[in-house]
């Protein structure tokens, strides 16, 4: 059963987001790696295969969009979930219509993110049947 586990990468420059998401997603049966720096996350995407990427859009000193573009280039199959502040939600939705599975606004509760991730996982499993 373990080999069927989907792998998730979480990138957010706020350590609290990573710390809280990891156990919440592990409990749903995913393998979770977390990063607070985009270049380290990008290295991980290059060296390992992820099924789902969860990333913040606005991070200090880096561009979430660029990370996404790069990650998608390396791994076009990956489903991306974007975390964003309320203020940037609309712009985010507009510019990411393609290639992003869904958006989630900060602050969010565990139930919300778990739901979105489950939907992404269902889509992945469906496509691999």
């Amino acid at each position: 059963m373990s080999q069927n586990k989907l792998k998730i990468l979480v990138l957010d420059d706020e350590p609290i987001v990573c710390k809280r998401l990891q156990p919440a997603l592990e409990k749903l049966g995913f393998t979770v790696d977390t990063f607070t720096r985009s270049f380290e996350a990008l290295q991980a995407v290059e060296s390992s295969t992820y099924d789902i990427i969860i990333t913040d859009l606005k991070m200090e000193g880096m561009d979430g969009m660029r990370f996404l573009t790069e990650a998608k280039k390396i791994s076009p199959e990956v489903e991306v979930i974007v975390i964003t502040g309320f203020a940037t939600m609309e712009t985010a939705k507009e510019s990411f219509k393609k290639g992003v599975f869904d958006f989630i606004a900060k602050p969010f509760n565990l139930g919300e993110i778990q739901q979105v991730v489950q939907r992404a996982a269902a889509k992945i499993r469906e496509s691999r049947k």
Binding site: E14, I16, L21, G85, K106, P107, N109, L110, I113
Partner: peptide, 13 residues
Amino acid sequence: EKSGGDYIFDRKY
């Protein structure tokens, strides 16, 4: 309610 731990938020929030 946010202080009850169900929500994920950061300093900026």
